[in-house]
């Protein structure tokens, strides 16, 4: 029974992973929680994980990058304390998509939401690593549909691009760059495959949301109601009763 009461703990704070399909969001989380890299299948909807971090319970939402679930993004982002915008370092397109498709989803997140820009697949960026890697489909090419896509997609994303995006994200959110965390510490280059920077990235994020937990505890639970209407286009709350 003691074990089950442990599970009843409410999450104190929410972190959301966003990004195009096949950038490796699930793989990053899997590397962090399971300490290994394995073939994953495309996420459906969103998956919820609870991470015990010291005395705090941190919930992590691993969302589907597929356009099919786009309408749900803002739902998963509701009152998030941190958003991890993830791209594939070997795919310029995945970087562009962050601004085009995913940034607006964060409108439902907390006003003091922390942003991180995370480039995954660092192991593939070296010229020698460009050769195909038989271990994981996800690590090779993004899905079967975009194999013959333009060279634009092949263009790599470097750290300067990520930092520029970070500045634009803050601008979008109407935040003062000087008052926020510096781009140098909020842009990460990781590899879910080798584990490079993965723990560091997640743990940095956990540390950063702790003040947000404390703030929330001080304010009490009253602030959790979000009046902003969700823009979940496809969803139909009427459900079965038609």
């Amino acid at each position: 029974m003691a074990e089950s009461t442990k599970k009843l703990k409410k999450p104190d704070v929410k972190i959301v992973l966003l990004g195009d399909m096949n950038v490796g969001k699930t793989s990053l989380l899997h590397r962090y929680t399971e300490r290994k890299f394995k073939d994953t299948v495309s996420t459906v909807g969103g998956a919820f994980f609870l991470k015990q971090w010291g005395p705090y319970n941190i919930s992590i939402w691993d969302t589907a990058g597929r356009e099919q679930f786009h309408g749900l993004g803002s739902m998963y982002c509701r009152s998030a304390a941190a958003v991890i915008l993830t791209y594939d370092m070997t795919s310029w397109q995945s970087y562009v998509e962050l601004e085009d498709r995913f940034l607006s989803l964060t409108d439902t997140a907390n006003s003091d939401c922390i942003f991180a820009i995370v480039g995954n697949k660092a192991d593939l960026t070296d010229s020698h690593a460009q050769a195909s890697n038989p271990e994981g489909e996800e690590e090779n090419k993004p899905a079967r549909m975009s194999v013959s896509s333009s060279s634009l997609q092949r263009k790599q994303v470097n750290r300067e691009d990520a930092m520029a995006l970070y500045a634009r994200v803050l601008h979008y959110k109407g935040l003062d760059e000087k008052a926020c965390l510096p781009a140098e510490s909020m842009c990460f280059e990781t590899s879910a495959k080798t584990g490079y920077n993965v723990d560091m990235m997640f743990e940095t994020m956990f540390e950063l949301v702790v003040p947000s937990i404390l703030k929330k505890r001080n304010e009490g639970e009253s602030s959790t109601v979000d009046l902003e209407a969700p823009s979940t286009g496809k969803s139909n709350k009427a459900g079965c009763c038609t």
Binding site: T26, E34, D39, V41, V44, G45, A47, F48, F49, D62
Partner: peptide, 14 residues
Amino acid sequence: GASSAFQAGEIWTP
């Protein structure tokens, strides 16, 4: 069956 990758997490999907 096709979502086996999320065995550790709790999925919420339409």
